[in-house]
Simulated assay, not measured.
Amino acid sequence: MRKVFILLFLIIFFGCKKDLLPKPKAYLSLTYPEKTYEDLTLSRPYSFKVSKMATIINEKNNWLSIKYPKLKASIDITYRPLKNNIRELLTEAEKLVFKHTAKADRIIPQDFINKEGRVFGSIYEITGNAASQIQFHVTDSTNNFIKGSLYFYAKPNYDSILPAVNYIKEDILHLIETLKWRHQ
């Protein structure tokens, strides 16, 4: 028995001469179409450029949904005319953002100001497994108020959807940067 044990030990110890190396980290390779934009064709109190990859769904009250079928996502846009209620609308928009606090790891705000175009607002990036990963609101501070939210049609798993969030975030920033009010 002792000879068998020694023989097994020698085979295991000297039998494998190949150096073992750790496997390199693998990253998911996702490719998205190159970005192209077109003007929003629906008649609204506002206009902006929207991704050609998206499908626009007309909703009542000047609301709309910007759908990304391949990414299983949508940006839901709500519009409200201002009637001396800007403080109420801003409070409501921020409450909706901070409802995600329980599931969010962080909420990162970023202000947006375009004095020339009279577009003022904030965009909130919500990290973690929250229901919405990006929310924003913009206003001209006198007549118009828009709120937008990014949603995915799946149970939130932030690590898995992060590439899609970043892709659509660029479209949201482009939307805000190209936003124009029709009635000033």
Rank of each mutant, 00 (worst) to 15 (best):
A104W: 03
N144S: 10
Y124S: 06
T127Y: 10
K103G: 00
F112G: 06
I146S: 14
R106N: 15
N114I: 02
I123L: 13
R106W: 13
G117N: 14
G128L: 09
N114K: 05
D105E: 14
N114L: 07
D140P: 01
P109K: 13
R106M: 14
G128F: 08
V97L: 06
V97R: 03
A102D: 05
N129D: 14
N143Q: 08
S122H: 11
V119S: 13
E125Y: 06
A130H: 01
Q110A: 15
A104N: 02
F112C: 03
A131W: 01
K115E: 15
T101D: 09
D140R: 02
I123E: 00
H100L: 02
T142D: 11
E116W: 01
H100I: 06
K147F: 11
I107H: 06
Y124L: 00
E125R: 10
I134L: 04
G117H: 10
N144D: 08
V138D: 05
P109D: 14
A130I: 01
S132E: 04
D140K: 00
S141D: 13
A130T: 00
Q133A: 05
E125N: 11
V119N: 01
Q135H: 04
H137C: 01
K103H: 05
K147T: 13
A130S: 11
A102Y: 03
D105A: 14
E125T: 14
F136Q: 02
D105K: 15
R118P: 14
I113A: 05
S141P: 08
P109S: 14
Y124R: 01
I134M: 00
F112L: 04
E116N: 04
D111K: 15
H137F: 15
K103Q: 06
F98W: 13
H100R: 10
K99Q: 04
I113T: 12
I123C: 08
D105I: 14
S141H: 07
I126C: 02
N143D: 13
F145E: 13
Q133M: 00
N143T: 03
Q110E: 15
D140S: 00
F145G: 12
Q135K: 06
A130W: 08
N114V: 10
F136G: 03
G117L: 00
I134R: 07
A104G: 01
R118G: 07
F112N: 07
K147E: 13
G121Y: 01
K103L: 03
A130G: 02
A130L: 09
F120L: 03
D111H: 08
D111R: 15
R118D: 07
H100F: 04
H100V: 00
F112V: 08
I126N: 07
T142R: 15
S122W: 03
